[in-house]
Design a protein around this nucleic acid. Structure first.
Lengths: 145, 145
DNA sequence: TCTAATTGTAATCAGTTGTGTTACATGTAT
DNA sequence: ATACATGTAACACAACTGATTACAATTAGA
């Protein structure tokens, strides 16, 4: 199964908040761009806020980035929106037969392997920032970011 | 969400078929070690067979590996059991607003980034083989594999 | 102070997926 | 023929995603 699109949506709205920094990025405005429901955006925004990526205030329309674009990695977003738990990208069957040679060892044997695989993936996300995302969009649109 | 445990179960079964190579690895026998239903094993076995990793025959009890242990990587198993589609580890929201600067570019901008992350993870799986898994189990049990 | 607009959050629903279970057709050996 | 195995389809059930509705709490401004 795939990792929730919350991650992609998170990147989307953070990039949009930046590009719309002269305007007001309300949950309704952001929802219209993502094409979803404002409540979905607000829930997501709560996660991003909790992780210190955005500033939002009850009753006040609009969200702002809490950090520089170049200081927010895709890994930050990934962790913030909680799409994959630590060391749980791969799930392992829980109750193998302990009377079996393989059954009683499989979990410990596999764990470092799948953990390494997950970490390799996350390292890549760590190396890309929202600045890269916004610059790429600007390039595609031939505008200044 | 996590990647299906079919992957871990696949590794489990293949390792067990090898270690039990003097005996008969029926779906019932394998299911007892994994602690699941024989039909689940048979479905999985169908996938492993289709990918040329095991040999099984209708009506005849027992499965055998179709290749050397050292010639089966974890990536081979991963592909065989079909847990993650190509370029679909991360899902991306499908209908962004094309009238929005970000909406009409986000998919193309994100795609290479998440694709690179997925590939990095898969590369790690490519570097480990079933031999590594079996040797580790043997070491833990202090036996010869 | 009252009103309108916005965020925060919970409850609910439909659709999808993963896993287990049952059942049975098909194939093999004796 | 009989016994036993695999192959496969149908179904149940839980868990999760994403959308939707509703409403309390908060704020700005008339």
């Amino acid at each position: 199964m795939s990792i929730s699109s919350r991650f992609a949506v998170g990147i989307h709205i953070l990039a949009l908040i930046h590009l719309n920094k002269e305007g007001t990025s309300s949950s309704e405005y952001l929802a219209a761009s993502v094409n979803t429901n404002p409540a979905v955006i607000r829930k997501l925004m709560g996660m991003l806020k909790k992780s210190g990526l955005v500033e939002v205030h009850p009753g006040i329309a609009g969200a702002k980035l809490a950090r520089e674009l170049s200081d927010i990695t895709l890994f930050d977003v990934y962790k913030a929106v909680d799409v994959v738990q630590e060391n749980e990208l791969f799930s392992v069957h829980g109750n193998p037969n302990l009377n079996c040679l393989v059954g009683r060892n499989i979990q410990n044997t596999i764990e470092p392997l799948i953990s390494a695989a997950q970490l390799a993936m996350e390292k890549v996300l760590e190396r890309a920032t929202l600045e890269d995302v916004v610059m790429d969009i600007a390039k595609k649109e031939k505008i200044k970011s």
